[in-house]
Design a protein around this nucleic acid. Sequence first.
DNA 1: GCAAAAGTGTTACACTTACACCCATGT
DNA 2: ACATGGGTGTAAGTGTAACACTTTTGC
Lengths: 209, 209
Amino acid sequence: MHLPIGISVDCTILGYEDGKMKVLLIKRDKFPEPEKWSLPGAYISEIETIENSAKRVLNELTGIQNIFLTQVGIFDEPNRYPDHRVISVLYCALIKPEQFELIAGSHAKQVSWHNLDEIKTLPFDHNKMIEHSLNWLKEEIWRKPILNSLLPDKFPLNQMKDLYQLILQAEIDNRNFRKKVISQELVERLDEKTKGGQQRPAFLYKFKE
Amino acid sequence: MHLPIGISVDCTILGYEDGKMKVLLIKRDKFPEPEKWSLPGAYISEIETIENSAKRVLNELTGIQNIFLTQVGIFDEPNRYPDHRVISVLYCALIKPEQFELIAGSHAKQVSWHNLDEIKTLPFDHNKMIEHSLNWLKEEIWRKPILNSLLPDKFPLNQMKDLYQLILQAEIDNRNFRKKVISQELVERLDEKTKGGQQRPAFLYKFKE
DNA sequence: GCAAAAGTGTTACACTTACACCCATGT
DNA sequence: ACATGGGTGTAAGTGTAACACTTTTGC
């Protein structure tokens, strides 16, 4: 009835800074895999929904709160975790690194952003989890302004395009991209331009609504 | 660590017969809710993936085996189940009722098909589960030949259209429907027609591949 | 010959894709 | 003046949506 199976949550928190995609990792302090960097995660509590557990765990480990988490998958290989069975529910969120103060708490020794393209082998199936989250993001990216969680409030369209290219891992046609996001009324142009660049200033845009 | 939280699977098994959508229910024999009709489901086992547990449970309860189950959701409200907490992973499958012999086993007193439009209040959150499965189906219906699991091997296009209308709960334009499924090479026409109808015979089609 | 279901084509609109040059600024 | 990234329009192709009449059979 009450099987000896643990249920945990893990979170892929993605950010965008200096033109690179980042993922938030914690340095573990306990068994298993102490001292290793991994996705923030922990067992769920008995009285919360899984999503609320994910929010709480994320806050306890990293200090991040009040963000929107989306469930993106379940990882249930019987041997994915050492010692005993743990089924993990994976959540993903996109945030602007500069808007959150990182506070390592609970069983995290450190918290920090890591460049996505430099991620090495992580414990358990966390590499698979990141890959899974990125695939989820690729599919969701055109639906509504998901990316306003990654971009600053005001941004030039080329920055937005760079981000789409980074996520989709593909070239995007400049003119078609502009037509699309403007005609779909995803973004609107402000009466303001970039300053201090080495070249022609660009109009700034913001997400609608 | 090993929290007293149960993990179960439930299955929405859908069929199509006599122009109606059907769902497979079992009559429960044990606590909780004995004697009530509900979706087939049970606790997962410690050594199987969740999906394999679902297949095993379905077979034990209904006799159905060798079918393709898709995970469509997780139901995790802390009080969805009486007495103690159980998180349930929901699977869905589409099958042809006439191709499976139903055998009530394990803790099922009976198994039988029920018309979807006559389903009353079921125990726990099983009504929500069915609704969730139907929404999933609405989204998946145009992707690949999902419905070849519901239709006979050979069928007239109008029957296929009726089924789409039933699932989507919407009118479909006859000509556009035919154009679409033929141009997408979903189906191909056979050199065979319906017989014994009261009207003009219709060409039979089959799913490609 | 008539009732009933089967079958068929065209046009308008929306969306996507491909493609190349001029513009505004800082140095 | 020139290097650098910013910015723009058009045409072809593809998919979707709306719409009404003729055909074939059983009775």
